[in-house]
Design a protein around this nucleic acid. Structure first.
Lengths: 212, 212
DNA sequence: GTCTATACCCGGATAGAC
DNA sequence: GTCTATCCGGGTATAGAC
C-alpha cells in the first residue's frame, strides 16, 4: 500500500517520494531501460502528467533515485568499516561495501551508473559524493602523506571496486547471495593486493616516460 | 557515400553491414540510449521496416555491433602486447589495450557492456570472447601453474581493467587523448601492482573464513 | 527475398480546466 | 496539485509492390 493513498486514488500525499519508490521497484523489475514515467505514474495511481509537477523530466526522477543511492552507500560503507582501526582493513571493508551495495541495491546502483545521466545537469548529484571522499584520509594515512601515491592508490581502489561490482551485475542476477559474497571478498582482496603492491603504481609512471 | 547506394537510394547492397556501420556512428553521437532502428534506417536510406529482414529487433543489431567490438578488441590486445616476452608486461599491455579500446572504440564498448543485452539470447556473443581467454595462459605462467591463484589473479585483473575503462568513459568525453593515455597507464600500473601484491588475493579468502 | 507503405501502441511532454 | 486532452515521435507488425 502506497503511503498517502485514499479512496483508491492518490491525492495530496508525498507524490514525489511515492514516485521515487515506484521508480526503484520498476527499475528492479525491468532495468533502467524498461523504466518509464508513464508506468511509474500508473503504479502510484496518478495521471502521466502529474510527475511533471515534481520532476522536469524522466531523467530528473532517475537523478533523485541516484541521490538516494549515494546516501545509502555512504551509510553502508561506514557501517561495514565499523570501528576497524587498521587503515588497510578499513579500505578493504569499504571495497566490500561497494560491491555489496551494487548487488543489494541494484536499482540505485543502476540509476547512478547505467542511467546515462548528464552529470553537468545535476550538480547536487555531484555534491552527494562528498561523504564518500572521507576515505581519502585513510588512503593518505597508508601513503604516509605522499599525495602523489595517495592519488594513484585512490584511483586504483575505486576502479577495482567499480570493476568487481559492474562485472558482478553483468554476470548474474543478484539474488545469488553466495555469488555476491564471493565477489565482495574478491574485491576486498584486490584492494589489499593493490595496497601491498602499490610501489608498482608509481614505478609505472616512470617507465612510461622512459619509453618516450 | 554508403556502399551499395544507387540512384540516391539503397538497393540490394549489403544492408546488414550498412546498418551496423550506421548503428556505430549513431551510438557514437547519441549513446546507446539515443540509438534507434528507425534513425539508423533513415541514415542508410531505407524504410524503418527494412532492418527487420536482417535483425529480429533492435537488440539483435546491437549484438552484431558487440561482436564486431570483440573481434577488434582481440586485435588491439595482441597488437599492444606485441612480442613482449615478460608475462608481467604482457598483462600490463593487455590491460592498457582494454582501456584504450573502451575509449577509442566507445560505441563498440558500449554495445558490449551498456546496451543491456540479454546474454542468454546471443550464444555467438559468448563465443566471441574466446580469443580473449588466450591471456589465461600468461596468468598461469606467472602463478607457476597454481590454478587457484590464477583464478584469483584473472578476476582481479579483469575487474581492474574494466573499472578503469568504465570510470574513464563516465568521467569525460573520449576525445581527450591525454586523459585516455593517463587512464590506460593507471590501469596498466594497477595490473602490475595486483601481480606484485597477489599474495593478498589468497590470504583474504583465509581470513574471511577465520572470521566465521 | 527484399523493400515500401501503413496502421497500431506506447512513452515523453505540454496546455488548460478544476 | 492533479486531471483531461492532445501532439509528437519511435518501435512493432503486416500486407503488398517489385
Amino acid at each position: 500500500m502506497i503511503a498517502g493513498a485514499k479512496d483508491g486514488r492518490y491525492h495530496h500525499g508525498d507524490l514525489r517520494a511515492a514516485l521515487v519508490d515506484a521508480a526503484i521497484a520498476l527499475i528492479a523489475e525491468r532495468g533502467v531501460r524498461g523504466f518509464s514515467l508513464a508506468e511509474a505514474s500508473r503504479r502510484v495511481g496518478v495521471s502521466a502528467a502529474a510527475p511533471y509537477r515534481h520532476f522536469a523530466d524522466r531523467d530528473e526522477l532517475l537523478a533523485a533515485v541516484a541521490v538516494r543511492g549515494l546516501h545509502l552507500f555512504a551509510t553502508m560503507a561506514t557501517s561495514e568499516a565499523g570501528d576497524t582501526a587498521d587503515p588497510r582493513q578499513r579500505l578493504a571493508a569499504m571495497t566490500r561495501a561497494y560491491v555489496r551495495f551494487a548487488a543489494e541495491q541494484r536499482p540505485l546502483f543502476d540509476a547512478l551508473y547505467s542511467a546515462g545521466l548528464d552529470k553537468a545537469r545535476y550538480p547536487y548529484l555531484q555534491r552527494a559524493w562528498a561523504p564518500v571522499a572521507a576515505y581519502r584520509a585513510v588512503i593518505e594515512e597508508i601513503c604516509a602523506g605522499d599525495v602523489v601515491a595517495a592519488d594513484a592508490l585512490a584511483d586504483a581502489l575505486e576502479s577495482a571496486a567499480h570493476g568487481h561490482a559492474t562485472l558482478l551485475l553483468d554476470a548474474c542476477n543478484v539474488h545469488d547471495r553466495d555469488a555476491v559474497t564471493a565477489a565482495a571478498d574478491k574485491a576486498a582482496a584486490a584492494a589489499l593486493a593493490l595496497i601491498d603492491g602499490r610501489q608498482a603504481l608509481l614505478r609505472r609512471a616512470l617507465t612510461a616516460s622512459d619509453q618516450r
